[in-house]
Simulated scan of single mutants.
Amino acid sequence: MQTQVTMSSRHYLSISHLSAASLFAERSTELEPKLTLGENESTNGLREHNACIVSTIMLSAAFLEATINEFFSDCAEDPYAKVATLPTCKLMAKLWSRGIPKTASYSILEKYEIALDLNEKQPFDKSSHPYQDVKLLVELRNALIHYEPETIQLPTGMLEEQRELHKFEKKFRGKFELNSLTGAGNAFYPDKMLGSGCARWAVKSAVALTDTFYSRFSLKPMYDHVRAQFSV
Results as ranks from 00 to 15, higher is better:
P190R: 07
L109P: 00
K171F: 04
P130A: 08
H225Q: 13
P87S: 15
G45L: 12
L86F: 13
A62H: 09
L209K: 08
L165S: 06
M1T: 13
N179C: 12
T212A: 15
E113S: 02
Y12Q: 14
H146S: 06
Y189S: 13
A62T: 06
D74Y: 00
L18T: 00
S14M: 12
P155A: 08
G38M: 09
E150T: 09
L136G: 09
I57E: 05
T212E: 15
A115Q: 01
T6H: 04
Y106E: 03
K135H: 14
S19F: 08
E113A: 04
Q2F: 12
D191G: 07
E113W: 09
S55V: 07
G183D: 02
K171S: 04
A199T: 03
A62N: 03
A25L: 11
K171Q: 02
F168D: 10
S55H: 09
V203W: 04
N44Q: 13
V138W: 00
L154S: 11
T212H: 12
E160W: 11
S127L: 13
N40H: 11
T3Q: 11
M222S: 07
L209V: 00
S22T: 03
E70A: 15
R98M: 01
P130N: 07
A199E: 08
I68K: 02
E148R: 07
R227Q: 12
K167Q: 14
P87F: 09
S127T: 05
R47S: 12
A199H: 03
V226S: 11
S231C: 12
V134A: 00
Y12W: 14
